[in-house]
Amino acid sequence: MSNRYVEMGLRSPVNLTWEVSLACNLRCTHCLSASGEPAVGELSTAEALDLVEQVHQAGVFQINFGGGEPFLRPDFEEILAACHGRGIMTCISTNGTLLDRERVARLASSRLVAIQVSMDGATPETCDEIRGNGVFTRAIEAIKLLAASSIPTSINTVLTKQNASQIPAMYEMAHSLGVSLRVSRFRPSGRGADNWEELRPTPAQLLEFSDWLANSGDVRTGDSFFSLTSQERQGLGLNLCGAAKLTCCVGPTGNMYPCAFLQTDRFKAGSLRDNSFQEIWDSSEIYASFRDLRIHSCEECQRFDQCHGGCPAVAWHLKNDINGGDPECLERCVTSIADANRTAVAA
């Protein structure tokens, strides 16, 4: 990643996370947006299609759709078609429960869509504890349909205390199904904040995962784990937070934010009902503050060049300090374990 060009400022994001609806048929305990019922005043079909055109004009390469469950929006395939008709690549994060053979065939015909099916364990017991009874089996059925199509498909797993030991098994399961594995970081937003202590991986689990990831180059992590990236994975992804520089987020009602984990009034960059996508990207003070963000407290760290202070969203949620440095970075995991060991020895 060439930070010099990123810091010069891009004319628009490379990709956009668009949470098209808060509606969801599941109630996952780690859900970053506490989805369930649709939000009041979600974008209408006309507004959504207008946004697609704006995003196209801005030159955004890819839209990552999430929610909520995107397929609960009756017009979702219409929105997708508008993207694909303009050459915009799309990736859909879904729980898989609303995918059937006919829908998969329709989606495959665009050749511009990739799908991530969420699963949170290699066994029904572990997965369903987080996602609900029977979800593991339904997700597997969806993955089999997708694997038989031309749609690039991955299993997306949020790393938690409960499933951390099953990640290698999930990798094997993904391969046996003919899809890839993507692991995302658990962050304390939405219901994830309510269940943070119960679900957060321990520092030892994070270190173990970092080591495993170092030898698993074909596992994608999106922008999740640059704070844990080992030397072996340097060059495979980001080494800094891309919020407001390479990416941004549009919420269900048309509010724009730096990222999906900071969808609060404090970080609202603007509303698409008041300003255009390009105006908000160019002129938002919140975005400007993220582009200028320097985590000075981390600058002396030996790993600073590899993470630049890590995830500001986690720092905000856990320390109420956007400049505070990622509380769960690799360096802090090592320190935390060493401190615990010293305390144990002293006792």
Binding site: Y5, M8, G9, L10, R11, V14, G59, F61, G87, M89
Partner: peptide
Amino acid sequence: RVRQEGFGLL
């Protein structure tokens, strides 16, 4: 995909 940026092409 490719687009024009201030420095050249992305």
